[in-house]
Amino acid sequence: MATGLLKGLGVTFQEMFRPKVTTKYPDEPYVFPNRLRGIQKLYVEKCIVCHQCANICPTQCITIKEKPKTDPAQKKKELAVFDINFEICILCDLCTEVCPTEAIVMTSNVELAETSRADLHKDLPWLEANNTNVREVNKP
């Protein structure tokens, strides 16, 4: 009559002697797959200020401004402002996908918790200096 109950007890009993599945994160770092989508890395010198990333962004979290040209002969546009608002960025990877020069790439750094909202506004220097877990293929 109660064989199902007893068999169930057997399953849970055996499980005690199987290896545990819990990982030791954060005591031991968790190795994320290389493609994992984390916060972006910006290569300022590669950027041609084409605004495609800002346009494709489904949440409009990227703000780009161009530097006024000092030398009229200069052809290449230069970045003045490149902000990503991480309050609303959904890490969908579309900005890095459209970038023609791979100036903006994704890293697999997802440990983004901050104690203040203001810290979530990542600006150009921060994004340029961000070198944690850059994907192998995107390293210069």
Binding site: E15, R18, K20, V21, T22
Partner: peptide
Amino acid sequence: KLLGWMQGRH
């Protein structure tokens, strides 16, 4: 502890 072990946890 027991519940953990029976559920594959520590």
